[in-house]
Amino acid sequence: MSFRFSGKNFIPFHKAVIPVCIALGACVSDQATYQATGDTGVQIGYTPDAAPVNRRTGMPEPGCWALDYEPAVTETITQNVQTQREKRDRDGTVTEPAIWRSETTTRIVTPRQTLNFETPCANMLTEEFLTSLQRSLQARGDYEGTISGQMDRQTRMAIRQYQVQNGLNSAYLSLENARALGLVEVPRPPETETSAPETPETVPEPDVTDI
């Protein structure tokens, strides 16, 4: 299960950072806070560039494809960094307190990813098909809207919520998930011709007559 598919916005989380003194004298306090950010689903949709190219033939793969992008997830870290150590006299009394400053850094937790997957063709997305889709998503608790047979925003959100559970963070319905919902027939493997087993020839027994 990958980090990128949560179905919802990433939740801020906190960690404690153990103070570590560096040779130069800088230390990091244990007041660091971490926050993960990043909205999901920069949608591109059905474009001529969506079909992947077959490496063997150099031609686009047949069928209908969707192209979607999931933006990078970044982590913002705010921590207090000691810029000057405290000063003490010979008796150990603090004469000058330590000086700290707040420092914020950002790092990429998950880089931006391209989502490229096969999807039901546009001529399949009829009102009857979308009605069945909404009912299937409703039965699974992912769709709470009206059964309208229209691909509206609420239906898109329900598609994403369902597909995230299967590892695809996109509001475009994949062909694989359409099959899992029972909306598209699963292709059968090609049948192999089997020849009937050969039966050994039986030689008739000769008639035996008494002489």
Results as ranks from 00 to 15, higher is better:
201 E>H: 08
181 L>N: 03
169 N>F: 14
166 N>K: 09
192 T>E: 13
154 Q>W: 12
207 D>P: 07
161 Q>M: 10
164 V>M: 06
194 T>D: 07
154 Q>C: 07
199 T>V: 05
187 P>I: 03
195 S>Y: 14
157 M>Q: 06
156 R>S: 09
192 T>N: 06
200 P>N: 10
193 E>R: 07
192 T>S: 04
164 V>L: 05
185 E>K: 10
168 L>E: 07
183 L>C: 08
169 N>A: 11
207 D>A: 07
174 S>P: 10
170 S>H: 08
201 E>G: 04
155 T>I: 12
176 E>G: 04
163 Q>Y: 12
185 E>R: 08
157 M>P: 04
162 Y>A: 02
175 L>R: 03
163 Q>S: 00
162 Y>N: 05
180 A>R: 09
178 A>K: 04
164 V>F: 14
159 I>T: 04
201 E>Y: 11
171 A>R: 06
150 Q>T: 09
159 I>M: 01
192 T>K: 05
208 V>P: 04
173 L>F: 11
176 E>I: 00
163 Q>F: 11
193 E>G: 07
163 Q>M: 02
165 Q>L: 01
158 A>R: 01
176 E>K: 02
208 V>Y: 15
182 G>S: 02
168 L>A: 03
206 P>Y: 12
191 E>L: 14
171 A>V: 06
157 M>E: 11
182 G>W: 04
190 P>E: 12
161 Q>S: 15
172 Y>W: 13
206 P>T: 05
175 L>H: 02
183 L>F: 08
208 V>N: 03
208 V>G: 05
164 V>E: 13
195 S>H: 11
149 G>Y: 14
194 T>V: 09
193 E>H: 10
202 T>A: 06
187 P>T: 02
167 G>D: 04
192 T>R: 05
149 G>P: 14
166 N>I: 00
182 G>R: 01
184 V>I: 14
188 R>N: 02
155 T>A: 13
205 E>C: 03
202 T>C: 02
194 T>W: 08
200 P>I: 08
173 L>K: 00
167 G>H: 03
157 M>G: 02
173 L>E: 06
159 I>Y: 14
170 S>L: 00
197 P>T: 13
153 R>Y: 15
184 V>E: 15
161 Q>Y: 15
190 P>R: 10
177 N>L: 06
196 A>F: 15
208 V>S: 05
172 Y>A: 00
176 E>M: 06
174 S>N: 02
175 L>Q: 07
162 Y>Q: 07
158 A>P: 12
176 E>W: 12
197 P>D: 15
183 L>S: 07
176 E>H: 04
154 Q>A: 08
188 R>E: 10
178 A>T: 05
181 L>E: 10
191 E>R: 14
171 A>M: 11
198 E>H: 05
155 T>Q: 13
203 V>M: 01
166 N>Y: 15
